[in-house]
Amino acid sequence: MYNDKVMEHFRNPKNVGEMTEPDGIGRVGNPTCGDIMQIAIKVKDDRIEDVKFQTFGCGAAIATSSMVTEMVKGKTLDEALHITNRSVAEELGGLPPNKLHCSNLAADALHEAIKDYQAKLGGSNGNGKDKPADGEEKDKHEGQDKHEGQDKHEGKDKPEGKDRPEGKDRPEGKDKH
């Protein structure tokens, strides 16, 4: 069912565990679908210095979580925001079709963690958590556009999580980013 690379990440997941004093945390998923992923990041000079994941889910969910942490380490926030569900699945050498919804979550969780970091950053600048505060940083702006795209999909995911055909479609919709 799973290829060797997926099984290797499942067997020996990288960067698993809880992070002390993370700069940003993102949690996505829902119990209906059986996958919940949390990604924590430490950011230094606009780069992801450290990343850790915690996942409740199937083999693909654990493998994609591990994979995304490997992919993102040392990347700039902007680069990290360009990591998509498809690129995670591709990096793993592919996933079974019915597992593609799991690979969605790893990139989503990462993006949520970055968003959380950016919101906190906004807060520490004394501008509260409002997004407009981010406008002064040019990289952020681009990142934010992406978030909006993600949010739209994520919002959609939740009510439709139960629906099988919709669930199957989701990864494709996502990939268009």
Partner: peptide, 8 residues
């Protein structure tokens, strides 16, 4: 469980 956010 050690890697489960629900257990944490």
């Amino acid at each position: 469980r050690a890697m489960s956010p629900l257990y944490a």
